[in-house]
């Protein structure tokens, strides 16, 4: 069994990379491998936004990541500084900024780059998408 971690740096609306990451993660887990965590960085933080409304015939990656977490308990981390500057906010961050809306909720965890390096060291392979 191999332990993977994934780094996702693209938005689901302007790249096929997050979809490829989700397919890769689904395959790896189904094959019996482990994923120590998925880190959303840069434009990738848009995967964590719960306010994207997609046509019904398109894959809703936000929901797909949540389903993956619910089935396999894969931790989903978003970089706090990358997320805040893009308006991707948890309830706590929104309240701190005096804003009334937020779009990040569980199971996405708002964290920092330290978490990314921790994932890097706790996995056999890091794959960037």
């Amino acid at each position: 069994m191999t332990t993977f971690s994934l780094l996702i740096t693209h938005s689901p609306t302007n790249s096929g990379e997050p979809y490829a990451a989700w397919r890769f993660a689904s395959s790896a887990l189904r094959l019996g491998h482990d994923i120590s965590g998925i880190f959303f960085y840069g434009e990738g933080v848009h995967n964590a936004s719960s306010l994207a409304v997609l046509p019904s015939d398109e894959v809703n990656l936000h929901r797909a990541w949540k389903d993956l977490h619910n089935e396999y308990k894969v931790p989903l981390y978003t970089c706090i500084s990358a997320a805040n500057r893009r308006g991707v906010l948890s309830e706590h961050e929104a309240r701190d900024a005096g804003l009334i809306h937020h779009n990040v909720d569980t199971p996405f965890i708002v964290s920092g780059l330290g978490e990314f390096f921790s994932l890097l060291h706790s996995s056999d392979r890091m794959v960037q998408f």
């Binding site: 993977f4 890769f24 189904r30 094959l31 794959v127 960037q128």
Partner: peptide, 18 residues
């Protein structure tokens, strides 16, 4: 390869660079 094959390739090689 399909996605299962992609996963196996990442194990076969020592590291992956995108």
């Amino acid at each position: 390869v399909d996605f299962d094959g992609f996963v196996e390739l990442t194990i076969q090689y020592d590291k992956v660079v995108s």
